[in-house]
Simulated assay, not measured.
Amino acid sequence: MFDALPHLPATEHPELLGEPVRRFIHLLPGAQVFTIDPALSDTETLCRTYGEDESTCGNCVIVRGRRGEIERTVACLALATTRIDVNRLVRKRLDVRKCSFAPMADAVAESGMEYGAITPVGLPEAWPIWIDAAVAAAGQVCIGAGTRSAKLVVPGRSLLALPNAEAVDQLAR
């Protein structure tokens, strides 16, 4: 996966990771990191540039919902070729009347990561992390590293070691 780029053990190269990711990378001992031009960070551009199929990449989105005065936040990770079922499955599991993607400025400020590089590794511990079952079943998946200048390659199942992470069937379609 992205074999044209040199992969390094992520736990041995924290300088390549976003600050919040550094604190939790030890939970993913098999994680590899590779550097990229930040202009190539978006999944579609990255895959097109390196001839990789988008199905090898996972995208993490932050979803917010509200019921009365209570606001709930969840991170959802799905393969880039799928769409997270925000309006049905996520809304129902969050137990909110309405939910949507968190505003970019909020997602960046609260995660401490760069936009377009948000990853489930290092998110606030109060946020549940829902990982689509297809990601958890993937042998390897490319995800953000908290900074647009790097990506992580991790065994899908290893992501379940993150705090508050769980596999969710049909999170994405």
Rank of each mutant, 00 (worst) to 15 (best):
55 S>P: 14
74 V>P: 11
14 P>S: 06
81 T>Y: 07
69 E>L: 12
72 R>N: 10
12 E>K: 14
106 D>T: 12
44 E>I: 04
61 V>R: 02
47 C>Y: 02
22 R>G: 01
80 A>R: 07
53 D>A: 08
73 T>C: 07
37 D>H: 02
107 A>Q: 05
97 R>K: 15
55 S>V: 15
41 S>W: 06
69 E>W: 07
46 L>R: 01
16 L>A: 06
8 L>V: 15
79 L>S: 11
53 D>P: 07
49 T>R: 04
47 C>E: 00
63 V>S: 03
63 V>W: 00
99 C>F: 07
53 D>M: 03
62 I>L: 08
96 V>E: 06
45 T>L: 10
47 C>K: 01
50 Y>I: 05
80 A>P: 12
57 C>L: 15
56 T>R: 09
25 I>N: 01
85 D>A: 09
23 R>K: 08
75 A>I: 10
40 L>G: 00
12 E>C: 13
50 Y>M: 04
110 E>M: 11
42 D>F: 08
67 R>Q: 14
50 Y>D: 04
91 R>I: 08
73 T>Q: 05
41 S>D: 06
22 R>Y: 05
108 V>A: 00
40 L>A: 05
28 L>Y: 02
44 E>C: 06
86 V>H: 03
16 L>W: 11
25 I>Y: 00
11 T>W: 00
66 R>V: 15
23 R>F: 04
64 R>N: 13
104 M>V: 10
18 G>R: 00
49 T>K: 02
10 A>G: 04
33 V>S: 03
47 C>N: 01
72 R>W: 13
39 A>Q: 09
39 A>K: 11
43 T>D: 01
22 R>D: 00
110 E>S: 00
40 L>P: 03
110 E>K: 03
110 E>T: 00
10 A>K: 02
89 L>W: 02
84 I>E: 07
15 E>S: 11
21 V>L: 07
67 R>V: 15
20 P>R: 09
63 V>R: 09
44 E>R: 14
10 A>T: 08
104 M>Y: 02
93 R>F: 10
19 E>S: 02
27 L>E: 10
20 P>K: 07
49 T>N: 00
107 A>T: 04
76 C>S: 11
41 S>V: 11
89 L>Q: 07
88 R>F: 10
20 P>F: 02
74 V>M: 14
33 V>Q: 09
63 V>T: 10
98 K>H: 10
63 V>H: 02
72 R>L: 12
26 H>W: 10
17 L>V: 13
37 D>M: 02
73 T>F: 08
50 Y>G: 05
24 F>H: 13
48 R>I: 05
81 T>V: 12
18 G>V: 00
9 P>V: 09
85 D>E: 13
62 I>K: 08
64 R>I: 15
73 T>W: 05
17 L>A: 11
54 E>I: 15
35 T>P: 05
61 V>I: 14
12 E>Y: 13
90 V>D: 08
57 C>K: 10
12 E>D: 15
87 N>H: 15
43 T>F: 03
84 I>R: 04
57 C>E: 01
32 Q>Y: 00
79 L>M: 09
85 D>K: 09
22 R>Q: 13
19 E>H: 07
11 T>S: 03
96 V>T: 11
77 L>C: 00
109 A>I: 03
69 E>S: 14
90 V>Y: 06
15 E>N: 06
34 F>Q: 01
44 E>H: 14
